[in-house]
Amino acid sequence: MVLQHIADGVLSGAVVALGAIGLSFTMKILRFANFSHSELLTWGAYFGLVFLGFTTAFGEFFGGNIGPFSFGWPLLAALVLSAVATSVLALVLHALVFEKLGRGAGHMTMVFASFGIALLLRHLVVLIWGPNPIYYSNELQFAILLPGNVRVLPDQVFLLGLTIVLVVCLHLFMKHSRTGIAMRGVSENPDLAGLSGVNVNNVVRWVWVIGASLAAVAGVLYGLTVQLRPELGFGLILPLFAAAILGGAGSLYGAVIGGLVVGLSENLSVMIIPTSYKPAVPFLLILIILYFRPDGLFGERR
């Protein structure tokens, strides 16, 4: 039983980690808590649904499902397209709202505007796709039995694998690419980075693109392994913040570990407290972290 909870915790933690990376970067580099970040997961998931409709129409000659998974090449293509579309959405929001507010108003105004945008985005989903849950595929999948009587679905294994690949790629990007180095520079000190010839506006746009793409992937993976509903992102606000704060703003591996801790503690909590109180667990984590280590486990003191 414990092993099953741990397996479930790692899997849901992987989705949280993908979402939290973007949130953590926004908190560090754009310097505000973006309450609308989790809505990008919702939009990513629904964009995936739209593109899946297109790609399936063209996907006949690619053959059916890949191996044991419930999906084929069309879903992978939809995943990439959804990341692009969600990035465009994030850039539009940045240009229309956050960029303007960032110039004049205080940064709490941006937090507040992100509140409004979250509400707008969430209800637009209801308006366009309706309030009821939707699934990418209605096919039944057989669970794989792992040692210790742990059951996982093939799609969940894919989720975990893809998360690891993406985190490693992002690590390499941050470490070696010019843009990645510029991003780290801006997150340390935007003025100094600007003086050294870094195009800060460009870096900010990269932060949005990376955050939105990872959010889209997380959203599609959530849709694949759970379901699509308009409150998908809303329910993840506290887990994402818990993971980002736990890891320390701006820390890539911090966000990943934070995501895993959140996923594990949510799933293990049902052994102690009633399941109906599970959504409060990330909040308790946030309180504990902020009380004892306000800068997160891996964050640097400012």
Partner: peptide, 20 residues
């Protein structure tokens, strides 16, 4: 449900436009 969503969207728009 969509009607309720429109109401919320309206409030969200008012807020964001007001802030801007």
């Amino acid at each position: 449900a969509q009607g309720g969503a429109m109401q919320a969207i309206l409030i969200g728009l008012i807020l964001v436009l007001m802030l801007l």
